[in-house]
């Protein structure tokens, strides 16, 4: 199917058509912070807003807190009830390329390693409509991780800003099906295609933060025992959970039961390897020192994940750099590490 286009004025109508079939999520600032929220049927304020959300869209698939099952004591045994799933089809509109890439990275854990019964049904029921960036932040570095601010690789349908309109590209069958569900889309002209190409090239150049990821796994492996280096890197970290909880590829969770008499619920909720209690066990805590936790966080993303899945668990979205209250910067950390390893 050839590419199409839509005038920005008609976006609400397009979303209206899709919302007949899907529960729709859009980038919203409605509650004081930017996150993906259910569409209210009219809000198109995201059209004037070109940056990323603070809470990543992973929260739609892997929420901060989620019921796993409930249980009730029944004489000598327990009766277990799984949360009901309505199988509602979802559509995320305006997901940024690095966040869509992050979902592909999360799939390695939640789909390929084992089939996570909470994440996967939502993932399978969701179509992703990507929206290319036009104004990357100074914290963005997606181009260093093989991405681009207008990359369509991990979405079903891709939108590129070409002025008053978006160029609409069907990437997967699911995406092309979306195109046929609305009469608001028009055929794209050759001029539209040219403008989209120019926008893509220009935006790529706007990502100025660079990180050299060549041989990064090997370099991290050689740096592992250099305690001085990791102590220096970790010095200003305050061990909060911002960089990990807001990371679109971090997936650690904690499990807790809540009991009231004979009834209970088991929850899972976001957890962070930055917390000192994260690895606390009855007799021992192997990462009691801060530098060990910081080293683990960096190595998990840039060494262990690529060893296991052939992909770095970072998409360069820059949230960890931008939201850190002490400006701990993973790109500076990795530069420092590489300089140390190279100097021997």
């Amino acid at each position: 199917m050839a590419n199409k286009k839509i005038n920005k004025k008609n976006i609400a109508k397009l979303l209206g058509d899709w919302s007949k079939e899907f529960e729709l999520f859009i980038p919203s600032k409605d509650e004081g912070i930017a996150k993906f929220a259910k569409w209210d049927g009219k809000d198109t304020s995201f059209l004037d807003w070109h940056r990323n959300t603070i809470v990543p869209p992973k929260a739609i698939f892997f929420p901060p807190v989620e019921e796993m099952f409930s249980f009730q004591k029944d004489k000598q045994s327990y009766h277990i009830e799984l949360p009901s799933s309505d199988g509602q089809k979802q559509l995320i509109f305006g997901i940024r390329p690095y966040d869509a890439n992050a979902l592909t990275i999360l799939d390695k854990t939640f789909k390929d390693t084992y089939e996570d019964p909470y994440y996967l049904p939502k993932r399978k029921n969701t179509v992703l409509v990507g929206l290319g960036c036009t104004k990357p932040y100074d914290s963005c570095f997606c181009t260093s991780l093989g991405g681009s601010p207008t990359d369509s690789a991990n979405v079903d349908l891709m939108l590129t800003d070409i002025g008053d309109e978006f160029l609409v590209e069907g990437v997967t069958d699911k995406g092309r099906e979306l195109m046929s569900m609305s009469s608001e889309l028009e055929e794209a002209t050759e001029a539209d295609e040219t403008r989209a190409k120019e926008t893509k090239e220009a935006t790529y150049q706007k990502v100025t933060r660079q990180l050299d990821t060549k041989d990064i796994e090997e370099k991290l492996l050689s740096s592992f025992e250099i305690q001085d280096l990791w102590e220096e890197i970790a010095a200003k970290c305050i061990s909060c959970g911002i960089c990990t909880l807001l990371c679109p590829t971090c997936y650690c969770f904690d499990i807790n039961d809540e009991l009231i008499k004979d009834r209970g619920t088991r929850f899972r909720s976001w957890d962070s390897c930055s917390f000192p209690v994260y690895t606390k066990m009855p007799m021992e805590n192997p990462r009691i020192e801060k530098w060990r936790r910081v080293r683990n966080k960096v190595c998990h993303k840039y060494e262990f994940y690529p060893m296991n899945f052939d992909v770095i668990a970072c998409t360069g979205c820059g949230r960890c750099v931008r939201q850190c209250p002490v400006n701990w910067d993973i790109t500076q950390t990795l530069e420092k590490m590489q300089a140390k390893v190279q100097s021997g």
């Binding site: 901060p64 061990s239 909060c240 959970g241 807001l246 904690d254 807790n256 976001w270 917390f275």
Partner: peptide, 30 residues
């Protein structure tokens, strides 16, 4: 989202063990 940045950045929050992580008794759900 319980990132605990408010606690981590606060100089007055210097306890090595915070009531939040206590499980016996559990003061609040984690």
């Amino acid at each position: 989202i319980r990132c605990y940045a408010c606690r981590s950045i606060c100089p007055a929050c210097f306890c090595e063990r915070c009531f939040v992580e206590e499980s016996e008794p559990q003061w609040i759900a984690p």
